[in-house]
């Protein structure tokens, strides 16, 4: 047990360093790099929350972005000012239209809303396994999208939801990333976490030894959804304006690519996946618009970056299906025992 606690400690140490970066970065580097850092941290929260069900519990959900979208809209509705609500959402029920929440409570509420939604959705769906749960959760994502487009009293429908205060800053996101990492590392490397992994590795054996499969999956699903909702709120307050299709298949694909690349059974792997995909996308995006070296002009090949990412994804699937980290954790050398412990666990599969 002692060893297990060292991962959170290592994470916390790294995050204190990150906090220094967070407050220092804007003074040292430009807005563009701050934004890249912020997006990496924000996507890390989303991918970590996704890894709980998809990686650690073996329930491969394609509906995670539905919770992110629900969280974004919930937070957006809560934090619009009263005047904005009157202008943008004139048909909002009286219950919601007389107040405006600050950033933090709105974000917590968004997380709670997503978590409650996850209880309702997860209670039936977590009984399914394999690709059936993937297809069913994909159905959930589509239903969320349809509801967001049609519940126009709350969401403005297909029209852009706008006016959300731009409150998301690098310190906020890193703070939430720290919370996410602490909660998830405590959970994943606890006895309950081992139950989750047992459910993932052998569902029948797990239930034979008395583990409640439904409960393990549901807990993972709901906690994951909470942080997805939080991430959704951070996204909403980062973008300021968004529409239902912001939270749809493109984002799903992006998060899954990050998770799979990094390694589905590892928290540090999730973050490494986010960093790799983010940096690669940024580099490719600047390269694909064409460039000139001496006399050679490479014309713009817009769209090439997506294809490169797709091939990379397939190569990972074929040659390193467990991603960069697999089940291992990066612990900054602070807890060698813990790493061994994890490797042993990995062999059990």
């Amino acid at each position: 047990m002692k060893a297990d606690l060292r991962i959170p400690l290592a994470v916390a140490a790294a995050l204190i360093l990150a906090a220094v970066v967070a407050f220092g970065a804007p003074h040292v580097v430009g807005d563009y790099f701050v934004r890249i850092l912020l997006l990496i941290a924000l996507n890390s929260i989303l991918v970590l929350s996704l890894s709980l069900s998809n990686g650690f519990t073996g329930v491969f959900s394609l509906g995670h972005v539905g919770f992110i979208g629900a969280g974004a809209y919930a937070a957006g509705i809560l934090s619009l000012t009263v005047q904005q609500k009157k202008a943008l959402l004139p048909h909002l029920p009286d219950l919601l239209n007389w107040f405006s929440l600050p950033f933090l409570p709105a974000t917590l509420a968004a997380g709670l809303f997503a978590a409650i939604l996850a209880v309702i959705v997860g209670y039936p769906l977590m009984r399914l396994s394999g690709y059936f749960v993937s297809v069913a959760t994909m159905g959930f994502l589509i239903i969320v999208n349809v509801v967001l487009i049609n519940a126009s009293d709350f969401t403005r429908g297909a029209r852009t939801f706008t006016g959300v205060p731009l409150a998301t800053s690098l310190p906020w996101v890193l703070g939430w990333l720290a919370v996410t990492l602490l909660v998830l590392s405590r959970l994943v490397y606890s006895p309950f976490g081992r139950r989750m992994k047992a459910v993932r590795d052998d569902t029948i054996a797990a239930s034979a030894v008395g583990i409640s499969v439904l409960r393990a999956r549901l807990v993972a699903f709901v906690i994951g959804a909470f942080f997805a909702g939080v991430g959704g709120s951070l996204y909403a307050h980062y973008l300021g304006s968004f529409s239902p299709n912001t939270f749809y298949f493109a984002m799903t694909m992006n998060l899954i690519a990050m998770l799979v690349l990094g390694g589905m059974g590892s928290l540090s792997g999730a973050i490494i996946g986010v960093i790799c995909v983010s940096i690669l996308s940024e580099v490719l995006r600047s390269v694909e618009r064409g460039f000139t070296i001496g006399d050679i002009t490479v014309p713009a090949l817009f769209g090439a970056s997506q294809i490169v990412l797709g091939f990379l994804f397939i190569l990972i699937m074929i040659f390193r299906p467990k991603g960069i980290m697999g089940d291992r954790e990066l612990t900054f050398g602070l807890s060698g025992r813990s790493a061994n412990h994890n490797q042993k666990e990995g062999k059990d599969r």
């Binding site: 430009g30 563009y32 934004r35 890249i36 997006l39 996204y235 980062y238 973008l239 940024e282």
Partner: peptide, 19 residues
């Protein structure tokens, strides 16, 4: 820059252009 019809990329591209 290609902003890929994606709100997140647009905000990144904007800061790249301005900054």
């Amino acid at each position: 820059y290609d902003s890929k019809s994606d709100a997140t990329v647009i905000s990144t591209v904007a800061s790249q252009l301005i900054d």
